[in-house]
């Protein structure tokens, strides 16, 4: 057989591609349930890390993590427009709730409202201390970095004004530059930062360009060191953390008033 004829080359290339893609498609669908379970466990683990219940480098069996999550973390569904909790719904219902909200806003013809409705319902988790009292409020934060959507959790102390911990667990930023946002050493510097000014308004946590000067009170209270070589990632984090805190603030204010 003439293996250098154009017809043979084309036929061979197509066959190889089809066979390999079929094999990949089969592996991918066979492994999907296991991958989703691993992802969900990672999400729960990061909530526990943000709340300070688990240390970032602690090695824990999956079963222990799940048990700890079930015992100490309660996921609530919040309507950010009204600032009230939605009773009888779970984290799994969020997508459906938001879809309905978007459809409703679109029917009203208001484009801005439709955009806001995309994330109208959000999960808010409460971490209980060993005495059962709320010890940490874990807020999911996410937004754009340079290349990708960054997802993380920001946990607040029970005074709802100070950062208890933060993790960024899903991103596609450049490893070594923007990807350093997942570095536990950097995340630890967020601890104790105040997200509110003296009047109690949300200012968020500002990822500064360069290093924080501890002698400047505003720096010390609200800012963390920038990620070197990753200005856009840093600015993105500053922006979406503030935006998400604003969205949750209506509810947080009612809690503070109590």
């Amino acid at each position: 057989m003439n293996t250098s004829s154009n017809g043979y080359v084309m036929g061979f290339a197509v066959t190889v591609c089809v066979v390999i893609s079929a094999a990949l498609a089969m592996t991918s669908s066979a492994l999907k349930p296991a991958q989703e379970a691993a992802k969900e466990l990672d999400r729960q683990k990061n909530m526990l890390i943000a709340a300070g219940f688990v240390q970032p480098d602690e090695v824990k069996a999956p079963a222990d993590l799940r048990r700890m999550f079930d015992e100490r973390v309660e996921e609530l569904v919040l309507d950010t427009e009204t600032g009230k909790l939605v009773e009888g719904k779970t984290a799994g219902d969020i997508a459906a709730l938001n879809k309905a909200a978007v459809a409703e806003a679109k029917a009203g013809g208001d484009k801005e409202a439709a955009k806001r409705a995309l994330t109208r319902y959000r999960v808010l988790a409460v971490g209980a201390g060993t005495d059962g009292k709320p010890e940490a409020y874990i807020l999911p934060v996410s937004g754009k970095g340079l290349w990708s959507t960054i997802k993380g959790f920001l946990a607040l102390e029970s005074d709802l004004a100070h950062v208890r911990g933060v993790t960024f667990y899903e991103h596609g930023e450049t490893p070594g530059l923007g990807g350093e946002c997942e570095n536990p050493v950097w995340c630890a510097t967020w601890r104790g930062k105040s997200i509110r000014d003296e009047q109690g308004h949300v200012v968020g946590v500002i990822v500064k360009k360069g290093k924080v000067d501890p002698t400047v009170p505003a720096d010390k209270a609200h800012k963390v060191d920038g990620l070197s070589g990753a200005t856009i990632t840093s600015n993105g984090i500053t922006k979406f953390v503030k935006a998400d805190l604003d969205a949750f603030d209506k509810y947080l204010q009612t809690l503070r008033a109590k």
Partner: peptide, 15 residues
């Protein structure tokens, strides 16, 4: 192809 399969296994069992 082989590398992607390996990567998929890692994502499922060694996340």
């Amino acid at each position: 192809g082989v590398v992607i399969v390996f990567d998929q296994f890692l994502k499922a069992y060694l996340f």
